[in-house]
Computed example of a mutant assay.
Amino acid sequence: MSALEINKVRKTFGNTEVLKEVSLAIESGEFLILVGPSGCGKSTLMNAIAGLEPVTAGEIRIAGRDVTWCTPAERDIAMVFQSYALYPSMTVRQNIAFGLEMRKMPRGEREAAVERVADLLQISHLLERKPSQLSGGQRQRVAMGRALAREPQIYLFDEPLSNLDAKLRVDMRTEIKKLHQRLGTTIVYVTHDQVEAMTLADRIAVMRDGEILQLGTPEAIYNDPVNRFVAEFMGSPSMNLIDATLEGDAAQGYRLRIVTPGEDDLCLPWPRPTEALASRVGQRVLLGLRPEHFAEHDARIDEMAQGAPFTARVSVAEPTGADILLRLPLGEGEVTARVGPRCPVLPGERLALRIDLGRAVLFDGQSEHRLA
C-alpha cells in the first residue's frame, strides 16, 4: 500500500486552473521532491496534501485512507515551512513540545520525545534558548524537531532551506539526507532548487503549469529528460540545446548537420535510430548535450577515443577549481563545455574537443518532445 496516493487532483482559483488532474503515488519511506519554477503549482499541491487548501476535484489517500476532505489535524502529517514559524516567546524545548501538548500527550512522553529529537538534531544544548538567540540554521533544526517529535505518517517540507545562506543550505541539505537515511521516513519536499532536488530525492516530480511533466529517479530525470523544459531546468549548468538538421535514413544511418556562422558545417553521426526519426528527415531538431558530454581531444589516443571530434574557438574560460567551464560557438549560439582543470586553453584560442553522442538526446524542433 502506498503511503500517499494523489488521484486526478484539480485545483482552480476562479477561472485559473492551478492543478490539472495531478496523479502520483509515493511509497512508504520514499523521499519525493516536487520541483519546478515559481507558479508551477508545487506549493499548491503541497497545501492540498496537507489539507490547507481544499481541492476542486480528485482524491487524496494517506495509507489507504481517503483524507480528501479531512482537516489538517486529521491527516497525520507534519509540515516544515519556508518560514520557521517558531513561537518567539517560547524556548526551543517549549516550541518542540507545543504540538504534542495540544494532542494531550502525557508530560513524561512529551519530555522523552523532545530529548529524542534534540539529540537526533544535535540541538540539546539549545533547549532553553529562545528563537531570537538562534542562528538561521539552528531555527530550521528546531522547526524540523517540532515536526519529528510527532512521528506522523508523512512529513511535508515546503522550501525549508530557501531562507538560509548558500553554505548553510548545503550543510542543512546534508543533514536532511542523513536524517532520512537514519529514520526511513516518508517525505514530500517542495523546492525550486534543482540541485537540492538532485541531491536529496529518491524520485523527482518536475512540474510546470499545474502538471507533472516527468516523474522518475534523479538519474532518469537528468540523463533521459522527456522534453526540452525538463532538459533545461534540471542540471547546473543546464543542458546545451543546439539547432541541427536531420539527414540520412535508417538504412544508411542518420546524421545531424549543425551550421555555425564563420565555421565549416559540422556533420555528426546519430548513433541511436528510432522510428520517430524517419518522418523528421530534413527537419529541424534539437541536439541536447550536457557540459560533461564534451571532452578534450587527445591525438595520441585517437584510435581509442570515443565521440565525434570538432574544433572551436573558445570565447570564455571559467575555472571553478575542480574543472573549467568553456563557452564556445556551436550552432546559432554558444554552448558550455566542462573540461579538466589542467586544460591548456585561453580565450580566443581554438581547442579540439570530442562530443559523446552516446549520451546525447534529441528533441523535436517543433513540439520539443524527446525523439531519441
Rank of each mutant, 00 (worst) to 15 (best):
R255Y: 00
E318K: 00
M46H: 08
G340M: 06
R313Y: 10
L32A: 13
V92Y: 11
S162K: 05
K11W: 04
D66L: 07
L34W: 04
Q122N: 12
E53L: 14
L100K: 04
D165H: 04
G333K: 08
Y254C: 02
H297W: 13
S2T: 14
L45Q: 14
R327D: 08
L266T: 07
Q153I: 13
K104I: 05
K11M: 06
L34V: 07
D209Y: 07
Q194Y: 13
A244K: 01
R284T: 08
K42G: 15
A251T: 07
Y87L: 07
E5C: 04
S28Q: 15
E17D: 15
E111Y: 05
L286Q: 09
M172G: 08
L34Y: 05
F310Y: 06
G216D: 10
L168M: 13
T12I: 03
I49Y: 06
M304A: 11
F98C: 03
K177I: 10
C343M: 11
L268G: 01
T311N: 09
W69K: 12
Q133F: 11
Q133E: 15
P291N: 00
T91C: 12
K11R: 13
A251L: 11
R359A: 14
R342S: 15
V142M: 11
Q94I: 08
L100H: 04
P160S: 14
I62A: 09
M90I: 10
R110S: 07
V80A: 08
L325Y: 12
F310M: 07
E211G: 12
Y222F: 12
A201P: 10
V9Y: 13
L183I: 14
E318F: 00
T186F: 14
G99L: 12
G348Y: 07
R93G: 07
L121Q: 09
S238Y: 03
L241P: 03
P291L: 00
E292L: 02
L346P: 01
E303Q: 06
T260M: 08
P261C: 11
A220F: 02
K11L: 12
R146I: 10
E30H: 06
L328Q: 04
D323T: 00
I77D: 04
D323N: 00
A317S: 10
Y254R: 01
E334T: 13
D66H: 03
L326W: 03
Q214L: 13
P344T: 03
N15A: 13
L127D: 01
A305N: 11
G14W: 05
L268D: 02
R116G: 02
I96T: 09
I258T: 04
E318R: 00
L34P: 05
L24Y: 12
A317D: 06
A85S: 13
M234P: 02
Y254E: 01
L86I: 09
R61N: 12
G64C: 04
Y254H: 02
G184D: 06
A143V: 06
S238K: 11
I26L: 15
E196I: 10
I258Y: 00
G333T: 12
D66P: 02
Y254A: 00
M46D: 13
V361R: 09
P269R: 01
V117N: 08
V339R: 03
R169Q: 08
V9F: 14
K8N: 15
L120P: 03
E175C: 05
M198S: 01
R116Q: 12
Q181A: 15
S162V: 09
G262S: 05
R110D: 08
V259W: 08
H297N: 14
R338S: 06
V170N: 01
R203T: 08
